[in-house]
Amino acid sequence: MIIKTEHLTYKYGIGTPFEKTALDDVSVSIKEGDYVGVIGHTGSGKSTLISHFNAILKPTSGKVFVDGQDIWQDDKTERIKARFKVGLVFQYPEHQLFEDTVYNDIAFGPKNMGLSGEEIEKRVMTSLEFVGLSKDCLEKSPFELSGGQKRRAAIAGVMAMSPKVLVLDEPAAGLDPRGRDEILSRIRDYHKETGSTVLLVSHSMEDIAENANSIIVMNRAACMMHASVPEVFEHASQLEKIGLDIPQITRVFISLHKLGYPVSQNIYTVDDAEREILSCLKGGGARD
């Protein structure tokens, strides 16, 4: 377990009239090397939860373990280590760019880790490749880049720290379809090549179905489910009740199944759908 929370509770504005429980007794554990999707309605506590993974927020009660260490147990060193072990990419990360060149901005994290100049350069180059930016960008000002490029430069800035866990809060928000596919496939490649754990917070069930292996469902400050993709999407009606959805393609196949076609109901991605329809047309019938 790379990340584990035990009875994690977090309250905003304690002692004021605005007190609000943002996390209520959340116990989740995340396996090393997993690709986890985090879904939930706006205000369900997703962002608050991930902010605990690298000690940005201090739990009101409960414990957070990163790599087996209780990060709030003793002195600061554990928390600083957690910051570097868990790379957090916030929503609209391009708003955090500040250096004069893209190179310096990506190098900011590694520099804070106290790495040597050589190592920093190596890391900047690899993460630049991971996000698919060309080398001409390096000497440009980050403010000259296009919206999608800025987003990628900012994500590269976190990847350059080579965190064991990469957490992304809506990395595709506000991008056009091509931009979002591009970013998500880059993250998928990063996950495959580095073997690191990835957490993806998203509102798009399609994105989650296509990328994640397991899903954490947040609802009203609590963790409602944490299971594999098929297990979670089986509970379509329950998800709908809390304002979530299942992938569109899954809906299509459930309807097809109801109409009497011999297809599986557990289809979550377009690629799977293609295969299923082809095998069905060949007369093979349902796969499962």
């Binding site: 902010s51 916030f90 900011f108 800035g157």
Partner: peptide, 16 residues
């Protein structure tokens, strides 16, 4: 609000 967000983002990148 914005300051809060940016501070957290930079903290996540190890800013002290």
């Amino acid at each position: 609000d914005e300051t809060d967000k940016i501070t957290n983002a930079q903290k996540a990148r190890g800013a002290d």
